[in-house]
Design a protein around this nucleic acid. Structure first.
Length: 575
RNA sequence: UGGGGCGUCGCCAAGUGGUAAGGCACCAGGUUUUGAUCCUGGCAUUCGCAGGUUCGAAUCCUGCCGCCCCAGCCA
């Protein structure tokens, strides 16, 4: 899309330097490792764009890995949803893997750690572990089980694996340093007992590895060279390194026999974890918990509600995948916690859609307009370009007759300063049809304007003798006789404050839901729009970009979502 | 009071001792049958603050200040 300058950031510098120095034999392999326990959102898209982008730009590859080490939270339905979202974003993974593909490897590595005196089985329960761990400012104390013999640990761990013990009865812990200032190093649990069926391995395992232990080994197994994650894992890096250094996977092929036996490629690496700041957006919430609550409490219409920051929501809203990619490219990568203005995203959407969306006319808030100097049966067909700058979009026919719909906002009985549109006795140009003059304003009994009676100066249409005549404004219209009725959903930001997560004033994100975030209206559209393909995006001139709803749109009952309005620089005078 | 990070324009973000990139936003012009798009120009004497080193500091040193993360058998 937009050929921006090649982004430069600290991660790319590290990757470029490693490649130049021949580290990892010059290879670059990254991975996007979601836990299949929810839908992907715009924040995930940042990680996806980063990981896949680096792989692409450094002649490397990127894997999609499901980090499924906690069967209690995960579900197979999310696996397919995540795959679809990543594909929709326009990215292709080299290999799809699951952390659960490596359960046997994790197990053998644990056996090695135990044999090397680096891990032990601990019988403390969760509460006791917490008590022994100490606090942020006080060191912890050694577990009474810390000095068990290798033989005893091996026996106990094998029995854990065999399913002899109840959930929570014991854990396998790394033997590191209970006095470390870094709490992650105070003998962290690396295996817990969970007799729960796993969506990928069924009942094969009664024990499951913890994130810190499984993630680094998974990276090494897949030959990942640069393991990119968010800032909160900085404290975990010493543990990531500790595990890999203790295990030294590349030097012990026997640990990974199950991988090879399963027919998976295996070229282990010694990966480097690098952390970057999450991507935050204002006027939205991104935490899985809050998004889940919005859906469950029916504050939105589901995970793919067009107001949701989920990728499936963005898709249904009509945000092009290219716009999301452009957005994160524009936002950049750094280690500073930051909040990007929602307007930047909207700008990216407009930028992509301006170049890719064909133009059409539609009237969203209709006012009847009658051209009195045209015959009752006057019908003609006007020729319109589909795009003002790109002839490749071709042209189309638009029907024009005596009765039209125009936008109610384009008429003002009592004009305000700077108003360029139609006023009583005034003139305005009807897009592509010529200049009209408003002769008469018809009102209902209650005083509401219900019809405008005008006369058309047909010489002023394109190609006509008076085509160059200047009038201040040009408005869009739809032929009343041929227009199709459509449901149009007008969306706005879900929250009406920049930081809905801020609850210091006692209010929560729920108190800041924007009541006008969705308005459903009836509109009149150019006839051809009924046949629009689902998910096709159009610019309705002067109104914004609209997408034919992915699920609800049908030729017989058209449904369009407003993706975003056009930029509006007309500063209305304060009244 | 422990450990780990981060402070450069309204919002992002380059910068790695040689005299503040870029994008978005904004402002001012121009083009325009979309108040859109597009084009041109403007927009940090200063880099959280205070000292110090140096011919020279956003970059190095010292001390403050502010913000974020960490005490799951979650990821």
């Amino acid at each position: 899309m937009t050929e921006a300058t090649t982004p430069t950031n600290f991660i790319r510098q590290i990757v470029a330097a490693d490649k130049a120095s021949g580290k990892h034999a010059g290879k670059v392999i990254t991975r996007f490792p979601p836990e299949p326990n929810g839908y992907l959102h715009l924040g995930h898209a940042k990680s996806i764009c980063l990981n896949f982008g680096i792989a692409r730009d450094y002649a490397g590859t990127c894997n999609l890995r499901f980090d499924d080490t906690n069967p209690a939270r995960e579900d197979i339905e999310f696996v397919e949803a995540i795959r679809e979202d990543v594909r929709w974003l326009g990215l292709e993974w080299a290999e799809q893997r699951h952390a659960s593909d490596y359960f046997e490897v994790f197990y053998r590595c644990a056996l090695k750690l135990i044999a090397d005196g680096k891990a032990y089985v601990c019988d403390l329960d969760a509460e006791e572990v917490r008590a022994y761990r100490g606090t942020l400012t006080e060191p912890g104390r050694n577990s009474p089980y810390r000095e068990r013999t290798v033989a005893e640990n091996l026996d106990l761990f094998q029995r854990m694996r065999a399913g002899e013990f109840e959930d929570g009865a014991r854990t396998l812990r790394a033997k590191i340093d209970m006095a470390s200032g870094n709490i992650n190093l105070r003998d962290p649990a690396i295996y817990r007992i969970r007799k729960q069926a796993h969506q990928n391995t069924g009942d094969a395992w009664p024990i499951y590895p913890m994130y810190d232990y499984a993630h680094c080994i998974s990276d090494a197994v897949e030959g990942i060279t640069h393991s990119l994650c968010t800032l909160e894992f900085e404290d975990h890096r010493p543990l990531y390194d500790w595990c890999l250094d203790q295990i030294n996977l590349p030097a012990h092929p026997e640990l990974a026999e199950s991988i090879v036996a399963a027919g998976l490629s295996y070229a282990p690496s010694r990966p480097q974890q690098i952390e970057f700041a999450r991507g935050n957006l204002d006027f939205t919430v991104m935490s899985k918990r809050k998004l889940m609550a919005l859906v469950q409490d029916r504050l939105v219409d589901g995970w793919d509600d067009p107001r949701m920051p989920t990728l499936t929501g963005a898709r249904r809203r009509g945000f092009p995948a290219a716009a999301i990619r452009l957005f994160w490219e524009r936002a950049g990568i750094s280690k500073q916690n930051s909040v990007i203005e929602y307007g930047v995203l909207e700008g990216c959407v407009r930028e992509v859609l301006d170049a890719t969306a064909a133009r059409r006319m539609g009237v969203i808030n209709p006012l009847r307009l009658v051209l009195q100097n045209l015959a009752d049966d006057h019908i003609e067909v006007l020729d319109f370009p589909n795009h003002p700058k790109d002839e490749a979009f071709g042209r189309r026919n638009v029907q024009f007759s005596r009765e039209l719909w125009i936008e109610r906002d384009d008429f003002l009985e009592e004009p305000i300063k700077g108003f360029h549109r139609l006023v009583p006795g005034g003139e305005v140009r009807l897009r592509g049809a010529g200049i009209i003059r408003c002769d008469e304003v018809v009102k209902s009994a209650t005083g509401e304007v219900i019809e405008l009676r005008c006369t058309l100066d047909a010489d002023t249409r394109p190609g006509g003798s008076g085509a160059d005549r200047k009038v201040k404004g040009t408005i869009h219209w739809v032929d009343a006789r041929s227009a199709v009725a459509a449901e149009v959903r007008l969306y706005d930001r879900l929250f009406d404050v920049a930081d809905p997560d801020d609850d210091t004033d006692g209010k929560t994100y729920r108190d800041h839901l924007n009541p006008g975030s969705r308005r459903i209206i009836r509109a009149w559209l150019e006839a051809g729009l009924a046949g629009a393909a689902r998910e096709s995006t159009w610019q309705f001139e002067r109104l914004g970009y609209f997408v034919a709803d992915r699920h609800d749109h049908a030729a017989a009952a058209p449904v369009f979502n407003r993706v975003v309005t056009l930029r509006d620089t007309w500063v209305k005078p304060a009244k």
